[in-house]
Nucleic acid binder design. Structure first.
Lengths: 106, 106
DNA sequence: GCTATTGTTCGATGGCTACCGTACATGAAT
DNA sequence: ATTCATGTACGGTAGCCATCGAACAATAGC
């Protein structure tokens, strides 16, 4: 039996625009979002597969920040954790934001 | 004779997307940009007319930050200083960014 | 059972920055 | 010239935050 639980992400209505902006204004987190946005398949990446120039603990901190801001969703499977960009939700709440941010910082 | 000089703002090509994002991720600076975006006429406001809940010195600091990031342009006239949002330039370099940011944080 | 692998948490640290008050510079107005 | 208005510069402070290493928890695999 595969354990697969969804971790609670902020409700769509509870996502604060300024908080999202602050989350996106860090180079490392932008790189995380960029890799999530560019990945194929389910749109998921395992945390350890994201390539960023920081240690595990720092990476974990950034994942937590992005998750708290409502930018990413998390899914745990065993010891692994998969994250994905909440594209549709963000697009609905903040139309065009993610796209223009990614293009602006490309 | 009216003294009217343009202060140097970053070249269009020199504007960094991450720097712009960082500048926009502060509530006070967002409010400044919002008032500049919403003002009528020339699109200019005198610094002292912008209503933000900080002292003069702190306001000056925020103006400097926005200017250094390339978000606003400044014009001096006597002891007064007028600033405006660099709408067209930003739109050309980062299409849709300002609009979506303002809508996201409305 | 033991041993990797994966990711979190904790404590500490250094740097950045928003904020203020005061002092200053400059030009306008009387 | 003096006074007022406008904005900047400086020094200091407090808080936030990105970063790391070390220790821990949980699962997978042998």
């Amino acid at each position: 039996m595969v354990t697969t639980s969804l971790t609670d992400a902020p409700d769509l209505a509870a996502i604060d625009g300024v908080t999202v902006l602050q989350a996106l204004s860090d180079p490392v987190r932008l790189e995380i979002v960029r890799q999530l946005a560019g990945c194929t398949g389910e749109g998921e990446l395992r945390c350890g597969q994201i390539e960023i120039p920081v240690t595990k603990s720092t990476a974990s901190h950034h994942f937590k920040t992005l998750h708290a801001a409502g930018v990413i969703a998390e899914r745990e499977a065993g010891t692994a954790k998969y994250i994905r960009l909440r594209r549709a939700e963000l697009e609905q709440r903040f139309p065009g934001l993610i796209d223009s941010v990614l293009r602006a910082t490309a």
